[in-house]
Amino acid sequence: MWSTFVDGLSSVLVQLATWLDGSYGAAVIALAVLVRLAMLPMTLKNAEQGWWRQQQLLALKPKLARLKERHAGDPAAQAQAMQALYREHGLTGGLGSGLLVALVQAPLGAGIYAAIRQGVAGAGSFLWIPKLARPDMWLALVVGLLSFAALLLNPAMSEQTRTLLQWLPVVISLLVVWHLAAGLGLYWAGSSAVNLVQMAMLRRRVRSRFVGAV
């Protein structure tokens, strides 16, 4: 079943390349954008719910501090009181929608990466990249910049957290893409570009719908 799934994705890439004047690199980017755009409503909703939950937790911080002080000598009672407070304000574990997104993305992403890995062996050049089967430093830099820009637009990160962590996704992206075949790096770049759009949309929705209510 898995090989059939990967072969089907490989066929999609070949068809996209045919439509895009034989460019396998353009086909990889197109597939990345199409997949992320198809999942955009789900991922945007999940990100929005995560931001809203974070704001609720921040609002409850004084009450949580009082509960910890009241039940300082009884961890079990403290945990029960905290759970009761969360239920009172409609706060759940926050894993439902996020887990659903992960369950959809993980096998799809693995299948697409396997399909691209099969196809790059026979792929040629794209833009400045001489061979899609080899890593490319400039592509790694592009992905790192896209990750950095998305982080700056993420409204779920406080200024302090953003300062502490702003270079972590950039460094990870640089190191990973630098060692990947450029064809796989192009898929990462396309996904990162859509993620940047998602963060911009989330920032706008947060400002227009929630900031006045918090």
Results as ranks from 00 to 15, higher is better:
103 L>P: 03
97 S>C: 01
72 A>R: 14
148 F>R: 05
55 Q>F: 08
63 K>L: 12
149 A>N: 06
120 V>D: 11
17 A>C: 06
99 L>F: 15
127 L>H: 05
142 V>H: 05
202 L>S: 06
90 G>C: 09
117 R>Q: 11
51 W>I: 02
101 V>N: 13
146 L>N: 07
108 L>T: 06
157 M>F: 11
115 A>N: 10
105 Q>E: 14
117 R>M: 04
146 L>G: 06
14 V>S: 15
80 Q>G: 12
204 R>M: 07
131 K>N: 14
87 R>V: 00
17 A>V: 03
97 S>R: 08
59 A>S: 12
211 V>R: 15
140 A>Y: 07
7 D>G: 01
1 M>G: 11
149 A>M: 13
7 D>I: 00
174 L>D: 02
8 G>N: 05
43 T>A: 14
124 G>E: 07
119 G>N: 08
141 L>E: 09
190 G>M: 06
73 G>W: 13
152 L>N: 08
45 K>I: 02
39 M>N: 00
25 G>W: 08
187 Y>T: 01
62 P>E: 03
198 Q>R: 12
187 Y>Q: 07
190 G>N: 04
88 E>K: 14
72 A>I: 01
29 I>F: 13
159 E>K: 09
48 E>I: 00
114 A>R: 11
47 A>G: 15
121 A>H: 15
134 R>Q: 15
57 L>I: 01
74 D>N: 14
96 G>F: 13
32 A>F: 11
33 V>E: 04
16 L>Q: 03
174 L>P: 04
147 S>K: 14
107 P>K: 12
145 L>Q: 03
194 V>I: 13
114 A>Q: 12
191 S>D: 00
159 E>F: 04
34 L>C: 11
79 A>E: 03
8 G>A: 10
56 Q>L: 13
62 P>C: 08
206 V>G: 09
99 L>V: 02
89 H>C: 04
84 A>D: 02
117 R>T: 08
52 W>S: 06
187 Y>L: 09
123 A>F: 08
41 P>N: 05
47 A>T: 00
52 W>A: 13
126 F>E: 03
49 Q>S: 13
183 G>A: 09
166 Q>V: 08
142 V>L: 14
31 L>C: 06
117 R>D: 12
165 L>E: 00
132 L>G: 04
112 I>P: 11
61 K>S: 13
